[in-house]
């Protein structure tokens, strides 16, 4: 079990049974509490920021806070931070694919009636 002492999430093809070195990591309730409090604080911030007139920055701030909250939920509540590279890549690929689809669909829509809106 000396293997665990030098744990890395890098792929190891010579390790036939567990090439991703997937290991079980238990996140403690204390860590969950920090995430919980952070989420509540940022919920309060997003409500407060919505009542300030920041022009174009209002939706940017709202989305930035929502994205930050989503990232810490994914990393800690969903344990992504402690998963193998295979699973990290899977998660990343999903969000990347979503952004590609939004970008391509949006470029279609905004270019259909160019200059008429």
């Amino acid at each position: 079990m000396a293997h665990e002492a030098i744990h890395t999430d890098a792929n190891d093809a010579s390790n036939v049974t567990n090439p991703e070195h997937a290991q079980h990591h238990i996140v403690t309730p204390l860590q969950y509490s920090f995430v919980f409090i952070t989420l509540l604080v940022f919920t309060a911030i997003t409500v407060f920021a919505a009542y300030l007139d920041l022009h174009w920055a209002n939706p940017v701030i709202a989305l930035a806070i929502a994205s930050f909250k989503a990232v810490i939920v994914i990393l800690f509540f969903m344990h992504a931070a402690y998963q193998s590279r295979l699973i990290k890549m899977t998660i990343g690929a999903g969000f990347f694919m979503f952004l590609v689809l939004v970008t391509m669909t949006m470029s279609d829509y905004i270019s259909r009636a160019w200059g008429l809106w």
Partner: peptide
């Protein structure tokens, strides 16, 4: 747990996008 947290995340986006568009 993964499913439940995913549903949470959807709401984390729905709340600002639907409720907080223009509160000023």
């Amino acid at each position: 747990g993964l499913y439940w947290h995913f549903v949470d995340i959807v709401w984390l986006f729905l709340f600002p996008l639907l409720y907080l568009i223009n509160r000023h």
